[in-house]
Amino acid sequence: MPNNRSHLEEDICIHIFTVSASMVGVCLTVIGLLRVVIAIRQIDSFADDLLALTAILFLVSCLSSYWALRTRSKGRMHQVERFADVVFIIAMLLMVVACIIITFAVAIS
């Protein structure tokens, strides 16, 4: 049974790693698109700054999960994996806030 749990935890780390890396790209793409909209409509938004922060947090989560996958100590793997998970959730929540800001900024203008 411990082997199945270890495999499951490694599987979670792999998912955090791949999704976090993808989300960095998504954040950067949205920042680029948002900058184009800001230039065209002459509106300013805090959302691009918030998305830059989420991109950094997703990168921290990605690197942390990679570190968890590479570590040999199970105890350290659990700590680093938990950290990566918390940072990932915070980044997702901030991304939702950025989406709300973008929605209201576009709707108001």
Rank of each mutant, 00 (worst) to 15 (best):
M1A: 06
M1K: 11
N4K: 12
R5F: 12
S6F: 12
E9W: 01
E10H: 13
E10L: 08
E10I: 08
D11I: 14
I12M: 06
C13N: 10
H15C: 15
I16E: 02
T18Y: 09
S20F: 01
S20A: 12
V24H: 10
V24C: 15
G25L: 05
G25V: 04
V26C: 05
L28D: 12
I31V: 07
I31P: 07
G32A: 09
G32Q: 09
L33K: 09
R35V: 13
V37F: 09
I38V: 13
I38N: 08
A39C: 12
A39P: 09
I40W: 14
I40T: 13
Q42L: 11
D44T: 14
S45N: 09
F46K: 14
L50A: 13
L51D: 03
A52C: 14
A52W: 09
A52I: 13
A55Y: 06
A55D: 04
A55H: 03
A55G: 02
A55W: 04
I56S: 07
I56R: 06
L57I: 05
S61R: 04
S61T: 07
Y66L: 15
L69I: 08
T71Y: 05
T71S: 06
T71V: 10
R72W: 15
R72V: 09
S73R: 01
K74D: 11
R76N: 05
H78W: 08
Q79F: 09
V80C: 02
E81V: 04
E81A: 02
R82P: 02
A84R: 03
D85C: 10
V87R: 00
F88N: 01
I89A: 02
I90L: 01
A91Y: 03
L94K: 00
L94I: 08
M95R: 01
V96M: 06
V97G: 04
A98M: 00
C99Q: 04
I100C: 01
I100T: 00
I101H: 01
T103W: 02
F104Y: 08
A105K: 07
A107V: 07
I108D: 15
I108T: 07
S109N: 12
